[in-house]
């Protein structure tokens, strides 16, 4: 397995276990790889649209997981995660293959909303999702879709 594959696997495993992506220094320490090489691997993995990076080169998103709290809080088997958007909130349940409770709110009125994935299906709830940006332009700025 090359460094990129090792780093990608470690990042996602760490995120699943800890609820947030690791810092490059933690990846370097865990894998015994130079930190600059870890940051270079982050950039190459970003090129395959599997990570989103800050200007510092550190991970802000390991989709569907967010590195920072968001309005999409996801609970799977008693662990807390944050998703980047409502699609990613379901994505965390899909990635972890578990039941999920999603605490969010209506983007219009702010009223709290709870969505649930149970036994491999979303439970019915009065809710819809809406993209502001056409699919062809999602990665122009993946933080605003």
């Amino acid at each position: 397995m090359d460094n990129d594959a090792l780093v990608q696997q470690y990042v996602y495993r760490f995120t699943a276990d800890h609820g947030r992506p690791p810092a490059s220094s933690a990846v370097a320490s865990a894998l015994g790889i130079d930190q600059q090489e870890v940051l270079a691997a982050f950039r190459r993995i970003h090129g395959r649209r599997l990570l989103v990076l800050a200007r510092t080169g550190e991970i802000t998103m390991a989709p569907p997981f967010s590195a920072v709290p968001t309005p999409f809080r996801v609970e799977v088997t008693d662990r807390e995660y944050f998703a980047n958007c409502v699609w990613d909130s379901f994505g965390i349940a899909a990635a972890l293959h578990g039941d999920a409770k999603i605490d969010s709110s209506c983007a219009c009125c702010g009223e709290p909303m709870v969505l649930r994935i149970f036994d491999g299906q979303p439970l019915p709830e009065p809710a819809v999702a809406h993209f502001a940006v056409p699919a062809a332009h999602w990665w122009d700025d993946i933080t605003y879709t």
């Binding site: 958007c85 209506c106 983007a107 219009c108 009125c109 009065p126 999702a129 809406h130």
Partner: peptide, 14 residues
Amino acid sequence: MLLFRSEEHVDKWC
């Protein structure tokens, strides 16, 4: 991608 309670709320937000 945002979450809304209903299509009417999407209309209002837009």
